[in-house]
Amino acid sequence: MNQNILVVLGHPNPNSYCAQLAETYSEAAKKSGDSVTLLKIGELNFDYNLNHGYSKDKKQELEPDIIKSQMLIQNADHLVFVYPSWWASMPAMLKAWIDRVFLPGFAFSYQKHSPFPKQLLKGKTARILITMDAPTWYYKWFNRSPGVQLLKHGTLEFCGIKPVKVTYFDQIRFRKQNTLDKWIKKSERMGSRGE
């Protein structure tokens, strides 16, 4: 069954390995019949600061690229996030985009007398493709996967998106070209299956 897929590239460098993974995934998904949008955060124009938090009194104006991002998420069946682990988390621009896009009233809403939100993005699934220089075991066991925890549990699942699957590409700096090429093929396979 064909689906709408939103691929979010969270690396600012358009020539990065993350960009190759995102573009390969996108092209493979298109060839299999899915409708795909590749959203490159580095090309968007928006204020990185959530200036008033979630204040009811002062609302921050949503720039056209933030409105477009919300529409793309709303229309997507499956979201794919591709980004590098920097300082065990994610690039600042991706975190800023999350802060500005996943707002109350769009992604979730607070409920009186409950610590649990009303999840407004139910029915969608997601995949995280994360690159890093560290070994996966070090990132998981010593760092405790902070970037993945933030995105998977703290954002996507909080808003009702699940399951969220994670694929790690580790020790990028030290890998030989044949391994990097093999991982590009892996991204292509995932894209062709829409997973």
Rank of each mutant, 00 (worst) to 15 (best):
M1C: 08
M1W: 11
M1Y: 12
N2M: 13
V7Q: 05
V8D: 00
P12Y: 01
P14R: 08
P14K: 10
N15W: 02
Y17I: 07
Y17Q: 00
C18M: 02
A19H: 03
Q20F: 00
A22I: 03
Y25I: 00
Y25G: 03
Y25K: 02
S26E: 04
S26C: 04
A29N: 03
K31V: 12
K31S: 14
S32A: 08
G33C: 09
G33D: 07
S35R: 09
T37K: 09
L38E: 08
E43L: 09
L44Y: 06
N45L: 11
N45Y: 09
F46E: 01
N49F: 15
N49H: 10
L50N: 06
L50K: 13
H52A: 11
H52Q: 13
H52I: 07
Y54T: 08
S55G: 10
D57T: 15
D57C: 09
K58Q: 11
K58E: 09
K59R: 14
K59V: 12
K59E: 14
K59P: 03
E61S: 14
D65N: 09
D65Q: 06
I67F: 03
K68S: 06
S69A: 11
S69W: 04
L72G: 02
L72E: 07
I73W: 01
D77L: 01
L79K: 01
L79C: 05
L79N: 01
F81W: 03
V82Q: 00
P84W: 00
S85L: 01
W87Y: 15
A88Q: 04
A88Y: 14
S89N: 07
M90T: 04
M90N: 00
M90R: 00
M90K: 00
P91V: 05
A92T: 10
A92D: 04
M93N: 07
L94K: 00
K95P: 00
W97M: 01
I98M: 06
V101N: 02
L103R: 03
L103C: 09
L103F: 10
G105R: 10
F106G: 08
A107V: 05
F108Y: 15
F108L: 06
S109Q: 11
S109T: 12
S114A: 13
P117K: 12
P117T: 11
K118T: 11
L120V: 05
G123C: 15
K124C: 08
A126D: 05
L129F: 05
I130C: 08
I130L: 12
T131K: 01
D133N: 14
A134S: 14
A134I: 04
T136C: 07
Y139K: 02
F142V: 10
F142E: 14
N143P: 00
R144T: 09
P146G: 01
G147Y: 02
V148W: 03
Q149L: 11
K152C: 08
H153T: 12
H153Q: 13
H153W: 12
T155L: 15
L156Y: 10
L156K: 02
L156I: 08
C159W: 08
G160A: 12
K162M: 14
K162R: 12
K162C: 13
K162T: 15
K165L: 07
V166M: 06
F169I: 04
D170G: 04
I172E: 09
R173F: 09
F174Y: 14
N178F: 15
N178H: 13
T179H: 08
T179E: 13
T179I: 11
K182Q: 15
K182Y: 04
K185N: 09
E188S: 11
G191L: 05
G191P: 02
S192K: 10
S192F: 12
R193Q: 13
G194E: 03
E195N: 08
